[in-house]
C-alpha cells in the first residue's frame, strides 16, 4: 500500500479536481496541494491532473516553478500519475499551443484529431495494452488532441477512435500517464489508480 504521506496534487489552474480527489479519497488517501517545487520533490505520490488547455497549463507549471522537479521525478520513475492533458504535458509540445514547450520527458508531440472525427472524443473507448501490464477494458476519454505513438522504453496501451490509433496510457516504474480519466472510468479505473498507489509497474 502507498505510504501514509498521502498524495500531493498539482493545481494546473483551470483543472477540475473534484473527481480525481474523490478517487484518491475512495482509496483512503489524504490530499495535499503542491505549493512549492520542494513539495513536488518530497512527495511520495504526485498527481498531475489535466483539464484545460496546453499553453495555460504549462505557463502555470513554469510560474509555480514545478517544471524541473516534475521532470526529474518522472525521469527517475518516482510515483507520479498524469491524467489526460497531464500525459500530453510530458511530451515536447502540442498542436493546441504550437509555440509552447512541454516538459520534454519524451519527444512526442500531441496532435489534433482530423479526418472528420467528432471532436472532442467524448465517451468510453476500449483500451488495448501492448503486453499484459494492464487489463483491457473501457475507459472514459475527453480529448481533442492525442499522442500517436508511445515513447520508447515505456509500457503502452492504445485505443482507436474512428480509424485513428492513439496512446491511451503509458507506464514506467512508478509513473502512469493516461489519456483517459481513470477517476471517471468506473471500477476498472479506480483499481488502476489503486494499483498505481500500491507501487506501479516493474518496467
Amino acid at each position: 500500500m502507498a505510504d501514509s504521506g498521502g498524495v500531493t496534487v498539482l493545481r494546473t489552474g483551470a483543472a477540475n479536481l473534484a473527481s480525481v480527489v474523490a478517487a484518491l479519497e475512495r482509496a483512503q488517501q489524504t490530499i495535499r496541494w503542491a505549493d512549492s517545487a520542494q513539495d513536488v520533490v518530497d512527495a511520495g505520490h504526485v498527481v498531475l491532473p489535466g483539464v484545460g488547455a496546453f499553453g495555460p497549463a504549462m505557463a502555470r507549471l513554469r510560474a509555480d516553478g514545478f517544471v524541473q522537479a516534475l521532470r526529474t521525478r518522472i525521469e527517475q520513475g518516482q510515483p507520479t500519475l498524469a491524467v489526460c492533458l497531464g500525459l500530453q504535458l510530458l511530451g515536447a509540445g502540442s498542436d493546441e499551443s504550437p509555440n509552447v514547450e512541454g516538459l520534454g520527458v519524451f519527444s512526442q508531440r500531441a496532435v489534433a484529431f482530423g479526418g472528420g472525427l467528432r471532436v472532442p472524443q467524448l465517451g468510453w473507448n476500449r483500451v488495448e495494452p501492448a503486453g499484459d501490464w494492464l487489463t483491457s477494458d473501457y475507459a472514459y476519454f475527453a480529448n481533442s488532441y492525442f499522442l500517436a505513438e508511445a515513447p520508447v522504453g515505456w509500457a503502452a496501451a492504445y485505443s482507436t477512435y474512428g480509424s485513428q490509433r492513439l496512446v491511451a496510457a503509458i507506464g514506467r516504474r512508478g509513473v502512469l500517464a493516461c489519456q483517459f480519466h481513470p477517476e471517471l472510468s468506473g471500477p476498472w479505473g479506480q483499481a488502476l489508480v489503486e494499483r498505481w498507489l500500491a507501487g506501479g509497474w516493474p518496467c
Partner: peptide, 24 residues
Amino acid sequence: MIPLTAGGGVKGIDDAAALLEAGA
C-alpha cells in the same frame, strides 16, 4: 466513478465554477 454533467440556472462563470468544484 463515472462522469457527471451538472446544469440548471447557470448564468455565469461563478455558477459553473461552483458546480465543478462541487463535483461536476
